[in-house]
């Protein structure tokens, strides 16, 4: 389970004070899939880094699997946006996937087994011995996903992982994430700026306001569990949800005058 309680983050450097996160409180239950969307510059990445224990919050608490986050928690994996920079260019694909397992002290045979399974799950069984830079962008992001999968996390965080790949690859990766989530039963928090992607992927979409960030709306996505790029996206319910969230985000970007006063 993932709990965020009263999270507050202020950047204070060179005498300039920027309030990135006003107040955020939400919970993602075990095995659920939540997406976070918001206008650009709304502190999505700050939120994710606070949850991952990479950034200390100014106020409030984050709890992962029943213990408070003070540094990177065990049982939590992150897939970063910059796939090109999150893979070790001097390690082959398999060694990239195995590195966290090696640091965790797993025996060699077990590491090999988990890496082979994870790479098969993302459709990269042939690429074990390649270097990341020999692969296309989409394949590199698959390696990063395989690394997270092999780590067997209880909580998986994804920070706009598909922002830099082309549209067709993106659709494939979205379906891959859905299937990985359903197979592993992992708690998944997926940060994106793409409303369509959030609605298509999640069971729930948390809509953030512009900075200082608060929760604008917490919306259940009542689409069928089986999603399909064509059928789901042409479902009238999908279109409604999308339009609704779009309107919410537009409002946070251009707030009405009375809202600003309140």
């Amino acid at each position: 389970m993932l709990e965020v309680r009263g999270l507050h983050k202020v950047y204070d450097s060179h005498g300039r004070r920027v309030e990135a996160i006003g107040e955020l409180t939400f919970t993602v239950d075990d095995g659920r899939f939540a997406c976070v969307v918001g206008p650009s510059g709304c502190g999505k990445t700050t939120l994710l880094r606070c949850i991952a224990g990479l950034l200390p919050p100014t106020g409030g608490e984050v709890w992962v699997q029943g213990s408070q986050v003070t540094g990177p928690p065990s049982g939590l994996a992150v897939v970063f946006q910059e796939y090109g920079r999150s893979l070790f260019p001097w390690l082959r694909v398999r060694d990239n996937v195995e590195l966290p397992l090696r640091a965790a002290g797993l025996p060699r045979a077990r590491r090999r087994e988990l890496a082979t399974e994870a790479l098969a799950a993302v459709g990269l069984s042939d690429a074990h011995r390649a270097y990341p830079w020999q692969l296309s962008g989409g394949m590199q992001q698959r390696v990063a996903i395989a690394r997270a999968v092999a780590y067997q996390p209880q909580v998986l965080l994804m920070d706009e992982p598909f922002a830099a790949v082309d549209a067709q690859t993106r659709a494939d990766l979205e379906d891959l994430i859905r299937s990985v989530w359903r197979r592993l039963g992992v708690t998944l928090l997926f940060v994106t700026h793409d409303i369509d992607e959030a609605v298509y992927l999640g069971e729930r979409v948390i809509v953030l306001s512009a900075a200082p960030t608060r929760i604008r709306e917490d919306l259940a996505i009542d689409l069928p569990v089986e999603r399909d790029q064509l059928a789901t996206r042409s479902d009238p319910r999908f279109t409604d949800l999308r339009a609704h969230i779009y309107a919410q985000i537009q409002k946070t970007r251009h707030p009405a005058p009375q809202e600003e006063l309140s």
Binding site: L54, P72, V78, R85, F88, L91, L99, Y151
Partner: peptide, 27 residues
């Protein structure tokens, strides 16, 4: 050392000698 790689090591709890050998010295 690349920041994203350093963050990757932190969040996957790659530390100590493994971090030195696989991240710092290699990069």
């Amino acid at each position: 050392v690349d920041e994203v790689l350093a963050d990757t090591c932190r969040s996957y709890r790659v530390r100590g000698l493994t971090r030195l050998r696989q991240l710092v010295l290699r990069s």
